[in-house]
Design a protein around this nucleic acid. Structure first.
Length: 488
RNA sequence: GUCCCCAUCGUCUAGUCUGGCCUAGGACACCGCCCUUUCACGGCGGCGACCGGGGUUCAAAUCCCCGUGGGGACGCCA
């Protein structure tokens, strides 16, 4: 293909122009906008995750915004715990946190604009009147929408307090072209004039969310299903304000075991509560990602993989039950796939805090011995203590069953023989045990359990040879003798 | 009540858009067997689902309609 220099450069600039436009279009900006009225809960965390993933997948921007327009219920402590939760999950934001409480002038200016253009009006109806009308409408089997008493009022009402309502279109349809649900059509007749400013002058959620998303340049909004009914009103507000609406994606809600919307009633719903129960952030992320999103049959996803693979196409449409057992399985998976030293890091802080000396045995070795058995870091800590405690608690039932009188001599001999093993390695311990049972003509299954109980206090423990090796010759022998002392 | 959304094993889901490859696949849980000095891990196997009814079609989990069921919204909360 040959083209003249002139047209070539023209061609070039066209391409350039187009590329810029495509890039501008491809620029993705998402946000997570929690209201600081509690902790970061499971549902909120998933919303944050999906928006974060969407932004990261497209190399876009992720914004954190605090929706604190409800001064009554918003608290700084709540902001703090939400940020803590985000950090724990590793969901970093590029902009913010922005506080709606600091953007008040902007909202008021926008409300004035609406008022000036007749797109909003003052409503003098009292709460009591409204409540009455609502109840009445419900009783009559009608949708309890505002009846428009003040919409066409011409008389100037004096000193009475008022709210400001948006003058919504009464006819026609509003279409939400949802990324997840597809096209959802609402009859404008179903919608009413929502309050955009309270009687104290403060703007309400449905209004500020629009102003914020528009002025912050948010391009995609992934949020809970429960907002779907708000969306047509918000779209109308975008129009009235002269903004372009972002793309919406309404994801299904997370349900409790009883298939009701997940709430405190269902037990732990705070993300940080799971941290305290010994869960790893990567397990939580993986779990949340798979709750409502899928990639074929794959179950395990690293964060990097999620960023690479995440897309809105594979977000499911139906609500899902929060399945704690699967979370636990994932947690166990992430514990056992850690390196030995990374496992040690999981239990070391707690043991040190409780005053344990954690030099011997080497924490890495202890980590290796227990990581396949623990499902939570709490269990990891409990198991690790077996190696670092001076005193172990022996399970009584197990002891009476296995450390019987006829075993005393054998156990005492075993402890004695332990001392002479040189070098003290897993191989030599194994050889010692083998010859010990052979010499006596007894079975391993007769010596194993009592020794295990004497050493660890329980029947559920790591490999016996490893335990002996880790505990060392002296400690192992001591524990066996101590156990015998307790046996009558 | 009105409006909106949804519907595959007990649970999370693949498959649905673009009908046939589906005697419906994977995972968690559960059960059994194997491995084994215990408990686990791991391996193998089992149990187990297309909500119902119509229609379209040679062919429906897949498309359409109607039921039913579940969820959500209906606030001077977000």
């Amino acid at each position: 293909m040959t083209i003249s220099t002139h047209s070539a450069s023209l061609f070039h600039s066209k391409i350039l122009e187009q590329a810029t436009r495509i890039q501008a279009m491809a620029e993705v900006k998402t946000r997570f906008a929690p209201s600081p009225t509690g902790f970061l809960h499971i549902g909120g965390a998933r919303t944050a995750l999906f928006n974060w993933l969407y932004a990261r997948h497209f190399g876009g921007t992720f914004v954190l915004r605090i929706e604190d327009t409800d001064a009554q219920r918003s608290t700084q402590e709540s902001v703090d715990v939400i940020l803590e939760g985000m950090k724990w999950l590793g969901l970093d934001w590029d902009e913010g946190p922005f506080y709606q409480s600091e953007r008040r002038e902007l909202y008021l200016a926008e409300i004035e604009k609406l008022l000036a253009h007749g797109k909003a009006y003052r409503c003098y109806c009292s709460r009591e009147e409204l409540d009455e009308k609502r109840t009445k409408a419900m009783d009559e089997g009608k949708k309890p929408k505002y009846d428009g008493t003040c919409r066409d009022r011409t008389s100037q009402a004096e000193d009475k307090s008022f709210t400001i309502r948006f003058r919504a279109p009464e006819t026609g349809k509003t279409v939400v072209d949802d990324m997840i649900k597809g096209k959802v059509v609402f009859d404008n007749g179903e919608l009413d004039d929502l309050i955009i400013a309270r009687s104290d002058g403060s703007p309400t959620y449905n209004f500020v969310v629009v102003v914020d998303d528009a002025t912050m340049g948010i391009t995609h909004i992934l949020r809970g299903d429960d907002h779907l009914n708000n969306t047509p009103r918000q779209i109308q507000l975008y129009d009235a304000l002269g903004y372009t609406a972002p793309v919406f994606g309404h994801m299904p809600l997370i349900l409790g075991q009883d298939k009701k919307r997940l709430s405190k009633r269902h037990g732990a719903t705070s993300v940080m509560a799971y941290k305290d129960m010994g869960y790893l952030p990567e397990a939580m992320i993986n779990f949340l990602a798979r709750l409502g999103w899928s990639h074929g049959d794959q179950e395990i996803f690293s964060k990097e993989e999620l960023i690479r693979l995440f897309d809105a196409d594979n977000i499911g449409k139906s609500a899902g039950v929060f399945n704690e057992e699967k979370l636990l399985w994932l947690n166990a998976h992430y514990i056992k796939s850690r390196s030995n030293s990374a496992v040690a890091e999981l239990f070391l802080p707690a043991l040190k805090a409780e005053g344990y000396a954690t030099q011997t045995p080497p924490p890495d070795a202890a980590g290796e011995a227990i990581k396949e058995r623990a499902k939570t870091t709490l269990e990891l800590e409990a198991m690790a203590k077996i190696f670092y405690s001076n005193e172990i608690t022996i399970d009584e039932d197990a002891a009476t069953k296995f450390i019987t009188e006829d075993k005393i001599e054998m156990l005492s001999d075993f402890a004695e023989g332990l001392k002479s093993i040189t070098p003290f390695t897993e191989e030599s311990i194994s050889a010692y045990m083998k010859s010990f049972v052979e010499e006596r003509g007894i079975k391993m299954k007769n010596v194993g359990p009592p020794i295990r109980i004497a050493l660890t206090g329980t029947m559920a423990s790591p490999d016996l040879i490893k335990v002996i090796k880790l505990l060392g010759q002296v400690e192992s022998a001591t524990r066996i003798r101590n156990a015998l002392k307790k046996t009558p």
